[in-house]
């Protein structure tokens, strides 16, 4: 793409890089010092969900596709990683890769089906497919039904690092999630990403310019599913557990909530949203079913008065891209 030829575009691009760079430095700094005052398991959970939400945001924020079934990839990758680590005795890196790759395959199939319909049907199809795979997980013998797969061994990373140490695990999760985050940032700022945004803004026009939009949508869907799978696989190792909660529709709803609160189509929004929602659920857990009511209320508030999300509002006030 030759948008660099336009000086204004170039300037805008540099500004973008500047604010995102500062944001990223702050993010890394926060997660480097955070273990000294927050529980590592809580942080790792937040990081896994942050990656999950970023992957989801790749679709809703940059292609304009609302997937209401992302728990399918998150949950199934979590099951398959746990199974590979526990019953096949794979080392953690191989188990995570296996879970992630399975999510990519599932994403290819689900994406192929879902993009056959336009608009809001896409959301309903992804939700229905995820529910189907929930029932499969409920019935399949290897998933352990209501118990899930428990006591998943974390193992030794590359045969060197013992992940049963909380801090070693934390570093592994942090590095992986940051790599995923940077990968997504690279994708949305590539020529490919520009085409995705063009599809979001005006699909018929993108078609008329000769882009095979279906293929772009499918590739974006597979990328999103793969990264959601990576997040799920990591979560299975962090909690040493894969369970039905991770494939249920409530999980698909949660990732929508995280991204919406943080800001749809912002770079850092999903991370901030994931962190806040995980914190909310951790500290309000004793309220029982009221958490559901609170989550619902946040959804309603966000849609009615706060559609840009926290990071989106911040970026708007500061006139920068975040």
């Amino acid at each position: 793409m030759e948008q660099a030829a336009d000086p204004r575009a170039l300037q805008k691009r540099q500004e973008t890089t500047w604010s995102v760079g500062v944001g990223f430095a702050l993010l890394v700094a926060f997660f480097a010092v955070a273990p000294s005052f927050l529980y590592p398991v809580f942080l790792m959970q937040a990081l896994c969900f942050a990656l999950f939400a970023c992957a989801f945001n790749l679709l809703i924020g940059y292609v304009g596709l609302l997937s209401f079934g992302h728990a399918l990839f998150f949950g199934w990758a979590s099951y398959l990683c746990a199974h590979a680590a526990k019953h096949w005795g794979l080392p953690p890196e191989a188990a995570v890769l296996f879970g992630t790759a399975s999510a990519a395959v599932l994403g290819l199939v689900a994406g192929f089906l879902a993009i056959r319909r336009q608009g809001i049907y896409f959301a309903m199809i992804t939700l229905a497919l995820a529910q189907m795979m929930y029932f499969v997980a409920l019935r399949a013998p290897f998933t352990g039904g209501e118990d899930g797969i428990q006591d998943v061994p974390r193992g030794r990373l590359f045969g060197l690092f013992d992940l049963s140490h909380e801090m070693t695990m934390y570093v592994f999760v942090l590095v992986t999630v940051l790599a995923g985050f940077l990968f997504i940032y690279r994708v949305i700022n590539s020529p490919f990403g520009e085409v995705l945004k063009a599809i979001r803004e005006n699909e018929p026009r993108a078609v008329s310019l000769g882009y095979k939009t279906e293929r772009y949508k499918l590739v974006a869907f597979v990328l999103s599913a793969t990264l959601a799978g990576l997040a799920g696989a990591l979560k299975a190792l962090v909690f040493q557990l894969a369970s039905l909660t991770d494939v249920y529709w409530t999980m698909s709803g949660e990732v929508v909530l995280m991204t919406l609160v943080g800001g749809l189509g912002t770079v850092f929004g999903p991370v901030v949203g994931a962190f806040l929602i995980v914190a909310l659920e951790t500290y309000l857990a004793q309220l029982g079913e009221w958490v559901l009511v609170i989550q619902g209320a946040i959804f309603v508030l966000c849609v009615l008065v706060f559609r840009r999300g926290i990071v989106g509002e911040l970026a708007n006030i500061l006139h920068v891209k975040l």
Binding site: I60, G64, L66, F68, G119, I120, A123, G253, V256, L260, E289, W290, V291, L292, V293, I294, Q295, G296, A297, I298, F299, V300, C302, V303, L304, R307
Partner: peptide, 19 residues
């Protein structure tokens, strides 16, 4: 607005009622 928001809003309402 985009149909997506209607779906998300009614999803939130459903959660509130069920909770």
């Amino acid at each position: 607005l985009d149909q997506v928001y209607g779906l998300i809003l009614t999803f939130g309402l459903a959660l509130m009622i069920e909770g």
